[in-house]
Simulated scan of single mutants.
Amino acid sequence: MSTDFQQARRALGLRLRELRLSAAGGRLTGTRLAQRLGWPHSKVYKLENGQQTATSEDLRAWAEGIGRPEVFAELDARLKGFESHIRSWRRQLAAGHRPVQDRWNLEVGRSQAVRVWEESVVPGMLQTADYARHIFLRYADLHGSVRDTDAAVRARMRRQEWLYETGRKFHALVWEGALHALICPPPVLTSQLDRLAGVIGMDTVELGIVPLSAPLRLPPANGFCLLDDRLVVAEDWHAELWLDDADSVTTYARVWATLRESAVYGADAQKLIGAVRRAVRAR
């Protein structure tokens, strides 16, 4: 979780405490407010101390509970301000994976060049439908989200039409370990590796594989995506970080360029993918 996010959440918590202490009708204790709202007292404590992220519903209830419904707009604006950059999976997946894929399709559609680094899975833009289905199912299990798997797969496959449009360029870097990962059955992974080998040579795709044996100037940390030079999206277990400030974009671009120095391309990438494919089939 980013320092900026933590600071913003703590600032919101301080504002909630300030409002509670100046509630209409007189100062409210945390216990009394919790009773009014039907919450455990620990929830009031965690929100005020920046240990829990409030929802819009929490903020509306707080404003009404202190007798100041008019402050909800201010509180909600604060929340939306820091959540525009930190997009928790809990909130994003409330309606399933399909809406998340639709938002990604819009952002990719606005872009001419996309640079991706993936250390654990094949990039979504290059996934087969069967491979994508297994990925969505694994994350739906993790987050307990709505299983709209088929709709999400269709949306992700539509995004791949971007690869066939003139003037686009998809630059993908993939850690070799991602090619071995049995997040799906071996036959599905074998077909996925065939798909990867098949895009090598496309004029809109540049696929680099970073071999396990390659010397590295940086550790192969979390995956991220750069959309032109305007936006970087980095993924973590709890959330996606959507960062559009120049410093962040520059940092991630430098990371991508550094990792690229360790990648193999063209015939060397084909050879590596083929070796992984044979190893998977032998399992």
Rank of each mutant, 00 (worst) to 15 (best):
G13R: 15
G13C: 15
G13T: 02
G13S: 03
L14H: 13
L14E: 10
R15L: 09
R15Y: 00
L16Q: 08
L16T: 00
L16G: 07
L16R: 06
L16N: 04
R17W: 03
E18P: 04
E18M: 03
E18Y: 10
E18G: 14
E18V: 08
R20M: 07
R20F: 03
R20N: 02
R20Y: 07
R20P: 00
L21F: 12
L21I: 06
L21R: 15
L21T: 14
S22T: 13
A23N: 03
A23H: 06
A23L: 00
A23D: 00
A23T: 12
A24C: 01
A24L: 05
A24R: 14
A24Q: 08
G25I: 02
G25S: 11
G25K: 05
G25Y: 05
G26N: 03
G26Q: 00
G26W: 05
L28H: 01
L28D: 00
L28F: 03
L28C: 08
L28P: 01
L28A: 04
T29I: 07
T29S: 15
G30C: 07
G30I: 00
G30M: 06
T31W: 13
T31Y: 14
T31I: 02
T31C: 04
R32F: 08
R32G: 00
R32E: 11
L33N: 07
L33P: 00
A34W: 03
A34D: 06
A34T: 05
A34P: 02
A34Q: 01
Q35D: 15
Q35I: 02
Q35S: 06
Q35Y: 06
Q35W: 09
Q35L: 08
R36E: 09
R36S: 09
L37G: 01
L37T: 02
L37S: 10
G38E: 03
G38M: 02
G38F: 06
W39S: 14
W39V: 06
P40L: 07
P40K: 14
H41T: 14
H41A: 12
H41F: 11
S42G: 10
S42P: 06
S42V: 12
K43V: 06
K43E: 05
K43P: 11
K43M: 12
K43A: 13
V44Q: 13
V44I: 14
V44A: 10
V44C: 08
V44S: 12
Y45W: 13
Y45D: 09
K46W: 08
K46L: 11
K46A: 11
K46N: 12
L47E: 04
L47Y: 04
N49K: 14
N49R: 13
G50S: 06
G50A: 11
Q51N: 05
Q51E: 03
Q51V: 02
Q52L: 07
Q52W: 01
Q52H: 06
Q52M: 13
Q52R: 04
T53A: 12
T53D: 09
A54S: 14
A54F: 00
S56D: 15
S56M: 07
S56L: 15
S56Y: 02
E57L: 15
E57W: 07
E57M: 12
E57H: 15
E57A: 14
E57V: 15
D58I: 09
D58R: 08
D58V: 09
L59M: 10
L59G: 05
L59Y: 13
R60T: 12
R60H: 13
A61R: 13
A61I: 07
A61V: 13
A61T: 11
W62D: 04
W62G: 08
A63D: 01
A63F: 10
E64C: 11
E64N: 11
E64T: 08
E64Q: 15
